[in-house]
Amino acid sequence: GGARTGRGRRASFSRTTAGHLARLARAGVRGARPENWYAITALSDGGPAFAEDEPITISPSQVEAFTTCGLRWLLASAVGAQEGGPNEYSTMGKVVHAVAEMAGADDGVDEVHVAQRLDEIWKDLEFRSSWYSEKQREQAARMVDKFLAWHRDNPNEVVALEESFKVDLGRVVIKGRIDRAERDDQGRAVIIDIKTSSTAVPKDELARHPQLGVYQYAVMLGAFERHGLIEPGGAKLIQVGKAAFTAKAREQEQPPPAEDADPEWPKRLVEIVATGMAGDVFQARANDKCRTCPVRSCCPVHDEGGQVGD
């Protein structure tokens, strides 16, 4: 009798719940219809993201994004769910890169030329107020000063600035753009990536930093052979934003792959990522970039995450 009573109570509760959900659904409340609940509907497409004969084009930044979170890469890069509009760091990045390119092309550039270039750039930017524009202008000037001080003390020869590259490996194509390529005193390539973000890469992650590793792998594959650069001599992140030191740029260096316990690690990384991108399952990984993720509302790792697609 007790078992039957328990079943009866559960059935009554289910009917009551169903009635409430039906009223909410008729009222147009989002999520009230069970057919729209997470993991209830069938997959839109159970196949891989790429057709079997479709080329897989990857960039150094995409390799880093994929290793951080496969689901975010799929939705942000492959499907097109991007951040909403330009932010402070992307704007500052464009400004600092423009001045860095000018400095790299002309060692005689001085503070007057830099100020003039900043004024030219600032005319094309839009800010929500003159106060905010002035504040950002001051911040940009500080970043530029840090970069120029680093540039003047840098002993390497600047060989290429803001240059695109492409390496064809068959089905996999590595395609990207570097801020600058330098030649060190041993004739090796040193790839430079200028950063204006607020967070530095943890020291223990630099040796296997994905983006820098792919840059060095591209050197090994002949991406910059036209400049006489065929051997990687390391890669560097030049932090000039809040991740920099108070009065100067922070240089974060990755050693050449030859100095790693596994010299083939960049090659293996590209192979693993290319295989993963071509697959049909993309893992969501909780990480320190989740807070600013543009697809957080679609991510099952987080409580607010919902269903992706229909």
Rank of each mutant, 00 (worst) to 15 (best):
V159G: 05
G80P: 03
E271W: 00
D260Y: 10
R137E: 10
L206C: 05
G31F: 09
G228V: 05
P34T: 13
K123R: 14
A39G: 10
K135M: 13
M143A: 07
V240Y: 02
G279M: 09
L148Q: 06
V219Y: 01
D124S: 15
V95R: 01
L161W: 03
T199V: 15
S14Y: 00
G19S: 12
I238T: 02
V99A: 01
A141K: 11
C290R: 02
V167P: 01
S44P: 12
A25V: 06
A105I: 00
L237E: 01
R180W: 00
A278Q: 13
P255A: 10
F66V: 07
Y38D: 13
Q211E: 09
P34V: 14
E162R: 07
Q136Y: 10
E182H: 13
D145F: 02
W122V: 01
E35T: 10
M92E: 08
R226W: 10
E157S: 02
R9N: 03
A105D: 09
P86K: 10
S12H: 12
D193S: 09
L71I: 03
S297P: 00
A243Y: 02
F13A: 15
E271L: 06
R10K: 13
A115C: 07
A25Q: 12
V95D: 03
R142D: 08
I272K: 11
V281D: 05
S44T: 14
V201M: 06
P155R: 11
A181I: 05
L237A: 04
S198K: 13
G305A: 10
P55G: 08
D145G: 07
S129R: 00
I191C: 09
A27V: 11
V109W: 04
E304G: 11
L229H: 01
A286H: 06
R208V: 10
I191K: 03
G8W: 06
S198G: 15
Q283D: 15
H209M: 02
D119A: 15
V173C: 08
T275C: 07
K289I: 13
E54Q: 15
D193Y: 04
R23P: 02
D262V: 13
V159K: 05
Y215G: 01
S130A: 14
V109T: 15
A200M: 00
D110I: 10
P210M: 04
G241A: 10
L21D: 01
S297W: 00
V29G: 04
I174E: 06
A141P: 02
Y38W: 11
A247I: 00
H97Y: 09
F66P: 01
E126W: 09
A42M: 08
P232Q: 05
L118A: 02
A200C: 00
G170Q: 08
K236A: 14
G234C: 07
N154A: 09
P155Q: 11
G108M: 02
R226C: 12
R128W: 06
I191L: 15
E64R: 14
R30A: 13
G213Q: 03
R33M: 12
D310A: 12
C290T: 05
P86R: 11
V95L: 08
A284R: 02
D193I: 05
K166R: 12
D288N: 12
D184I: 12
K248H: 09
L212K: 01
N156P: 02
A100M: 07
M277C: 15
E134Y: 07
G2C: 06
P263A: 05
R188D: 10
V301S: 11
R137S: 15
I192W: 03
R72A: 10
H97E: 12
K203P: 01
L24D: 11
G222H: 00
P155H: 11
A218F: 04
E231G: 07
A261F: 09
